[in-house]
């Protein structure tokens, strides 16, 4: 049995990749974006953020963004989603989509049990 090339992502990893999908962000920006996307339900702490960010960087899914002169806060490091990271994120979204579809199908087919 071949190992899955895109295994399911941990929730924190998924949210980080999703936060970086639109633009480069620094650590605190990622936390704020995740909070915004989840309507304040999912708040990441710095420990969890950097544990997962380190793992994503080790897998080359996220890299350090080069510092731009237009950036307001040049002292902060920005993180960028790589092409590989975008592919992994897309694969994860597809997987979640199929899970949601399957769940909806099963819930709609559910019939009351016969006693």
């Amino acid at each position: 049995m071949k190992p899955d090339p895109n295994p399911p992502l941990a929730p924190a990893m998924l949210h980080i990749l999703l936060a970086l999908a639109e633009e480069d962000l620094h650590g605190y920006g990622i936390i704020q974006e995740i909070s915004r996307q989840s309507h304040g339900h999912y708040k990441l702490g710095p420990g969890t953020l950097y544990d997962n960010l380190k793992r994503l960087m080790d897998q080359k899914l996220v890299i350090d963004a080069p510092k731009s002169s237009l950036s307001d806060d040049e002292t902060r490091r920005l993180y960028r989603l790589t092409a590989q990271g975008r592919t992994v994120l897309s694969a994860e979204i597809d997987r979640l989509h199929s899970v949601v579809q399957e769940a909806r199908l099963r819930l709609s087919e559910k019939r009351p049990r016969r006693v």
Partner: peptide, 29 residues
Amino acid sequence: RFGEEMLWIFDEQTREGRSLQLFFDILRS
């Protein structure tokens, strides 16, 4: 690699009154 940034986020988030959660978070980390 990440120490200074973590401390910066700690400073920002303690203003929101999340100290206890931040300590659980860093111990887990």
